[in-house]
Structures are given as structure tokens and as C-alpha cells.
Nucleic acid binder design. Structure first.
Lengths: 145, 145
DNA sequence: CTCGCACTCGCAAGCCGCTTGCAGGAGCAC
DNA sequence: GTGCTCCTGCAAGCGGCTTGCGAGTGCGAG
């Protein structure tokens, strides 16, 4: 969904966060990514930017806390972030984790297409393991208490 | 599904593996567990058995290679094992990973029940994120090549 | 424009869980 | 019983995330 630097600065301000170069850069990465990205992927995508990984890490945490970059997938035990508002359904659709390349794809549209006839994802989905991530009955009960 | 020590020894022999105390114990754990168990869980369940974690780790790898203990879930990036033949469908059913307690449950029967009316899992499933684990189209194509 | 405080950053170390190298010990076929 | 091969324990290694600390910087007040 691409955003301008100005847009990024505005969003940070709105959430009461200071505007710093790494934060703008991270927002840019999230905005430009097709799939949800992990901390490590953000580092890779930033490439040779010379920002410390601790800085990026803490900024992701801040952005998450501020609601600007919610965790939309926890596949493989790795938090993956997306820009808030990138999908109107807040990523409450199925995701696909590739065990080979580690990519996480949003199956929003694909799954319906694949299940009916044949899309590029059809074979992948047919062979996949289904995992639901959430809170089990016991933990839900405990949380309500 | 509980197995006797004799049964465990027999299975190890059949697969050409030497019979050792830790292997029999690990098979016992897998046989006694309701849900698929991870390496770490096996360690916990063995408790104060004084076997080195490296030993248990390598035995799980061996059992997996021998086909005695296939990995039936990779939720959270953690391999989870079950005794071969424990489920006739080889665990090709949905699993549920609790983000609080880390438990992985088999949703074989539960999911149908929960979706229709209301079981203990209904609420958990309704709120859960769906993840499919497998090989994405690109990697599938590469593997076929 | 300047100042000052609180928030950020970079560095480096810490930590956790899995993984591996190596040397001594044990299963099992003969 | 003997010997070869595989298994075990110890200890170190490694990758990825996380945190403590002192130096640096955004930004609102003056």
C-alpha cells in the first residue's frame, strides 16, 4: 500500500511517538510489503542501513504497542507485522507459512479460488497442515476469571 | 494409546534400531501423551531421569527417521511428535496451538462439533487465526524440477 | 532560537532452546 | 566372550531474540 515519508511522519505523530529516521523507514517497509514481515525480514529489507538491530526491534515493539503495526501472524513462533489498516479485516483470514522459504502469504482471496477449481495455491493448500492459533478453552476460562 | 515396554522393544527392533533405556522411555512418553509432544515436553515428562537432553534430542531424530515418531505438527516452529499409527489419518487434521500455554491439541473430532453448535472448543476456534503449513507454489515448483 | 528533559539509539552482553563434536561406554551379532 | 558399531554424556556452539547502560536527539516550553 506504499506510503510517503510525510504520511509516515503524520501517523507517528498521531500516535504520540517521536519521529525518527528508523521509525519512518520501518513504516515504509511495512507499507511496501505484500506479506506480513518478521523482525528479521525487516532487518534484511533495510539492508545496509547501519541501524542497530536492537533499535529496529524496539521500534517494532513500539509500533505494535501504538497500534500502528499489529502482529497479524505468529506462524513458526515468529511475530509478523503489517501496517494497521492494510487489510480491512485486520488479517482475520487464513495465512500460509512455507516450510521451505519461510514466507507467510495472505490467503484472503486465494483460498476460495483454490478450493473451487485450481489456482497457483491449490496444490499447496491441498497438501498443507492446518493450524489454528489462539487460546485454548482452559486458558480462555482462566482469562475470563 | 499406552504401550508396554515389550511392545516398545519390539518396535525398535523392527525398525533396526538398538534397544536402549532412553528410547524405550521416549516411546512410552509418546504413547502415553494425548497431544503431540515437543522435544522440550519430552524432557519435562521424563522429569528427573538423568538422561542428557542431547540423548533425548538425538533419539527423537532417530525415531523420526525410522518412521516410529513422525512430526505431526510444526506449530510455533517447534517439531511435535506422535507415535506412528496413533491416528489412522496420520494427523492430517487441524491442530490448535494455544498462545498462552503452548499446548497443541488435535481438533479431529472437535472441529466438526464446535462448528455446528457449541463444544468446549467453539469459542477458541471462532477467535483463532488459521495457519496452513506446507510448501508454497514457488517451492513446490522448485522441488519438482 | 535556545534549553532541557524524556525518549531513542548503538553497543555489547545475556539468554533460551536447539544442535553438534568428541571421547568413553554399551547393545548385539557372531 | 569378543569386537565392531552405534549410543550416551559432557560441554561448547550457534541463531535469534531481548535487555542494560551510557551517549545522543526530538521537540515542546520559554
Amino acid at each position: 500500500m506504499r506510503i510517503t515519508k510525510e504520511e509516515a511522519r503524520r501517523r507517528l505523530r498521531e500516535c504520540g511517538l517521536r519521529v525518527t529516521a528508523p521509525r519512518v523507514a520501518v513504516l515504509g517497509i511495512l507499507a511496501g510489503a505484500e506479506d506480513p514481515v518478521s523482525f528479521t525480514q525487516v532487518l534484511d529489507l533495510l539492508g545496509d542501513s547501519d541501524w542497530d538491530q536492537a533499535t529496529i526491534y524496539r521500534n517494532l515493539v513500539k509500533l505494535r504497542e501504538a497500534g500502528l503495526a499489529p502482529v497479524v501472524s505468529r506462524a513458526d513462533g515468529i511475530d509478523r507485522y503489517a501496517l494497521a489498516g492494510d487489510h480491512e479485516d485486520s488479517h482475520r483470514h487464513p495465512h500460509f507459512l512455507c516450510e521451505d522459504c519461510g514466507r507467510v502469504a495472505c490467503l484472503k482471496e486465494e483460498i476460495a479460488a483454490a478450493l473451487s477449481i485450481d489456482g497457483p495455491w491449490a496444490e499447496s493448500i491441498r497438501r498443507a497442515m492446518v493450524h489454528l492459533l489462539g487460546h485454548c478453552p482452559d486458558c480462555l476460562a482462566q482469562a475470563d476469571a
